[in-house]
């Protein structure tokens, strides 16, 4: 069953066209990765889906429903959580407050507590740092918080924008390990990465995006072995 269907979308920043007709699908239970170089349109694609960027042409379907240009808080309520590039945690809020903001629309104290405990099973470090300001933590911890915060909505589709950015290799391993665990728990994942090697190693399928267009697609393994991909992104 198709969770996400992106049909030929075009997105502009002012006069600059960032996406020139991007199409792809994500099936339930998959990890799909979108790889490409800086400025290729990876982040813009995620922003178009979550509603942070305005789509000019084309359509986005989520579980068969048209969500093109819905506002960001609405797509989040529908079960799409977007972990933005650069983590973007609320630096002056404590870890706990960050998580509570993640559950902003969730009703019931007990439910929120339960979800927070669930987040702590993946990221025990966050529990230790509960009352610390988000901005005082290390990059890896901030990434954990950003993912944990997104999990508070119990998403169906988790979109991760460069979770490995600026992190030490060992931390990247940990984060990817957790992405795999989350996927096993039934969360469909759309992963955007510059770190193509890591991304392809855990993805079921992948798309290569270049200058705002999808230029190549295949299973994670196929892409990892593709000569062009090797040359451009895995060198």
């Amino acid at each position: 069953m198709t969770v996400l269907e992106v049909n030929n979308i075009e997105t502009y920043y002012g006069a600059i066209q960032a996406l020139k007709g991007v199409s792809f699908q994500v099936e339930r239970g998959e990890i799909v990765t979108l790889i490409g170089s800086n400025g290729a349109g990876k982040s813009t694609t995620l922003k178009s889906i979550s509603g942070l960027a305005k789509v000019k042409k084309g359509a986005i379907l989520y579980n068969g429903q048209d969500i093109t240009n819905k506002q960001a808080h609405e797509t989040t309520l529908m079960g799409i959580s977007h972990v933005p590039e650069g983590r973007r945690i609320f630096a002056n809020l404590t870890v706990k407050e960050n998580l509570l903001m993640g559950a902003f629309s969730v009703k019931g104290k007990a439910v929120i507590e339960e979800r927070m405990e669930n987040v702590f099973t993946y990221f025990p470090r966050l529990k230790e740092r509960m009352n610390q300001k988000g901005g005082t933590m290390s990059g890896g911890e901030q990434q954990m918080l950003a993912i944990g915060r997104a999990l508070m909505m119990q998403p169906n589709l988790l979109m991760l924008d460069e979770p490995s950015m600026g992190l030490a290799p060992i931390v990247v391993e940990q984060i990817f390990e957790i992405i795999l665990q989350l996927n096993e728990m039934g969360i469909t994942i759309l992963l955007v990465e510059q770190n193509a090697y890591q991304a392809l190693s855990i993805a079921h399928r992948g798309y290569v995006i270049q200058n705002g267009e999808i230029v190549l697609t295949g299973t994670g393994k196929e892409l990892a072995e593709n000569e062009e991909v090797k040359e451009a992104y895995l060198a």
């Binding site: 989040t76 002056n92 903001m101």
Partner: peptide, 13 residues
């Protein structure tokens, strides 16, 4: 602190 990210938290900005 961050209007865009707040919107991603399902906050109606």
């Amino acid at each position: 602190m961050d209007r865009e990210t707040a919107a991603l938290m399902s906050i109606n900005v």
